[in-house]
Amino acid sequence: MFSTRTAALLLAAVALLPLGTPARAAPPPAPPAPPSTPSAPFPPSSPSWEIDTPDQVLAPRVYTPTAAEDAVEPRDAAEGTYALVEHVPLDEVMTRVACSKQAGPYQRAVERWLKLTVDGKQSAADCKAIRAFQRQQGIQPAIGFAGPVTWARMQLVAARKNPNARKKCPVRTHRVACVDLDRQLTWVQKGTKVVFGPVSMRSGRAVHPTRKGWHTIYWRHKNHVSTLYNAPMPYAQFFDGGQAFHAVYDSIHTTVGSMGCVNLTVADARRLWGVLKKGDRVYVWGHRPGT
């Protein structure tokens, strides 16, 4: 039962409350946390040969580099960076196989180039022919695996005499930097004369493709650093938004493409820097194999 003593205690508690005190409002919701900024340009689990310099979406802040900046030449890549080392299956490396029995990611393309039966299946004859080409070109390990290095070398060897034999790059009286996504090659021509290249390159992957069509070199920065990930982009020559020709300090022969830029070796990017000027035209066509 509700006793007289309990009622008295409740009345006393009410009497102690201040009169006219408004009810306390609920605290406002906390503002949303700002988006986190990645602390590294790539996931820690990424193999080193898949690393790119991804500031290909937003155009960089354009300014005139100082004379002191222009005077500094970007550093060379470490010795062996661009060695023709094929990406072969790990189990075949560990067991030291003499001839690979596995079909590589470029099996059909390599078979076609070597005029073998194009079936996408590795045979003893395929391995023998691929291995002979690898040994001729100094590709290691020469075990007949149809990987990206072997395929890229075949494209370069075939294109050296006349990279525009198929007339895919428009001929103009002015310089045109040609970017062939099909063969992963780039060169510069003026009229029908090739004034640079061809050289191997790496274009954008499926989700970050190198944009096709006509472009113009609008900004050059010899010692550019990625504005998103603080990654070096030596001899950068921007032609569309954040996409540029530039050197990378890792292999350009990978099954994974760049984040949109045309990646070159330091030596090739340095020579291209001396050929192209602001205002020169760039033409991109084709489709990167595997994307």
Rank of each mutant, 00 (worst) to 15 (best):
P54F: 04
D70M: 14
T66W: 03
A67N: 14
A109V: 08
R131E: 06
R108I: 02
L84G: 03
P163C: 09
W49R: 05
T117E: 15
A98C: 10
K121E: 11
T117W: 07
P170M: 06
R135I: 09
V62H: 05
V72W: 04
H87C: 08
D52K: 00
K115D: 15
K115P: 06
Q155H: 11
P148Q: 09
E79H: 10
P163I: 06
W151D: 00
A146C: 05
K128F: 12
L116T: 07
E79T: 13
T150H: 04
K167P: 01
L58R: 15
H87Q: 15
K121I: 09
P65G: 05
W151I: 05
E111R: 08
V72Q: 13
A152S: 15
Y63K: 09
K101S: 14
Q140R: 15
Y82A: 04
H174I: 12
R135Y: 06
R112P: 02
I51W: 00
A158Q: 08
D52R: 02
P60H: 05
V171Q: 11
P105I: 03
C99K: 11
D119I: 04
A129P: 00
P148A: 13
P74E: 05
A68V: 12
A132R: 12
T95N: 11
L90N: 13
A159G: 10
R166N: 15
V157F: 04
E50Q: 09
G138S: 08
D55M: 00
I130N: 01
H87E: 15
A77M: 03
E111T: 11
Y106M: 13
P163G: 09
V171L: 08
H174V: 14
R75P: 01
R172C: 05
Q155A: 10
D52N: 06
P141C: 07
D119E: 09
P89V: 07
T64I: 14
R175L: 13
Y82T: 02
Y63W: 11
W113G: 00
F145N: 04
K128W: 11
R61W: 04
D76F: 00
G144K: 02
P170Y: 07
P65C: 06
A59R: 00
V149Y: 03
A152T: 10
D76W: 04
V88T: 12
A71T: 03
V62L: 08
R96A: 14
A77V: 05
R61E: 12
I51K: 02
D70P: 01
M94A: 15
D70I: 12
A158R: 10
A158T: 07
N164S: 11
P65T: 05
R96D: 13
L116H: 03
C99M: 14
K161W: 09
R112S: 15
V157L: 10
V72M: 12
V149P: 00
P105K: 02
K101Y: 11
I139L: 03
E73Y: 10
